[in-house]
């Protein structure tokens, strides 16, 4: 479970987060909506331990982030909006490094990485240096690194942005699978359609404040299946 309580963060005079509180229960995918600059990325970066809050607390699967950041990081996966990697390592090497640091057994790490790379259609280029990757491919690698250890809490910051249609669908399925296994997912996006389809609840941030929390019932039954355009795209992609 992810619990954020009274989180406040300033950048100089700018109040980026103003006493934001929210909770993501195990098995739940919560969408974090907001305009540009609403504080979504700040909230996720702070919850991921990449920057310290000015006030408030973050609890990751029962661990206080401020008290035991290492244990919290162990239980957390974070797919950044602007991912960064070792440019001269390959995707395979990067995932091998992440797997070792996260304490996965070598065979498990290798198997998980292979599955994810194939799922996201990166397997064919997994031995190329990351600096040759496009933005979308970097985002896929970031997503793979975040879910490699099947964390109990997952933070996704515009994680599917830049994904092609097939990879986006596969990633959504992977998120649903993780949630079904008990993972608490906080999914930040500015695309309401993605949140409508994927999430169980939505939190709307406005000027650093938790403006509204909506249950899935509030936006009606989610659209199921593929849109006509997605169907056409997949037909072309699969035919070649």
């Amino acid at each position: 479970m992810l619990r954020v309580e009274g989180l406040t963060r300033r950048y100089g005079d700018l109040l980026a987060l103003d006493r934001v509180s929210l909770e993501v229960r195990p098995g739940e995918i919560v969408g974090l909506l907001g305009a540009n600059g609403a504080g979504k990325s700040t909230l996720l970066r702070t919850a991921a331990g990449l920057q310290a809050p000015d006030a408030g607390s973050v609890t990751v699967a029962g661990v206080d982030l401020a008290r035991d950041p290492r244990e919290a990081a162990r239980r957390l996966g974070y797919a950044a909006e602007e991912p960064s990697f070792y440019d001269e390592l390959s995707a395979d090497e990067h995932l091998a490094f992440v797997s070792a640091v996260r304490g996965l057994a070598p065979e498990d790490g290798r198997a998980h990485a292979r599955r994810l790379l194939e799922l996201l259609e990166l397997a064919g280029r997994a031995d190329e240096p990351v600096r040759r990757f496009s933005h979308g491919m970097c985002k896929k690698l970031s997503f793979a690194a975040a879910v490699l250890h099947e964390p109990p809490v997952l933070l996704c910051d515009e994680a599917l942005e830049g994904f092609d249609v097939a990879a986006a669908l596969a990633a959504k399925q992977e998120l649903r699978r993780l949630a079904a296994a008990g993972c608490a997912v906080l999914f930040a996006s500015h695309i309401t359609e993605t949140v409508e389809r994927l999430c169980d609840r939505a939190v709307i941030l406005h000027r650093g404040r938790n403006a509204r929390t909506l249950d899935r019932m509030a936006w009606g039954a989610p659209a199921t299946g593929l849109s006509p355009l997605e169907r056409e795209f997949l037909a072309v992609a699969r035919s070649t």
Binding site: L89, S90, D92, E93, F97, A100, D127, P129
Partner: peptide, 20 residues
């Protein structure tokens, strides 16, 4: 660069850091 060699999968953080 050309394609890179296969990584060494290890369970040790230190070895992973040194290898990297």
């Amino acid at each position: 660069a050309a394609r890179l060699p296969t990584p060494r999968w290890t369970g040790s953080t230190w070895r992973a850091l040194l290898d990297k």
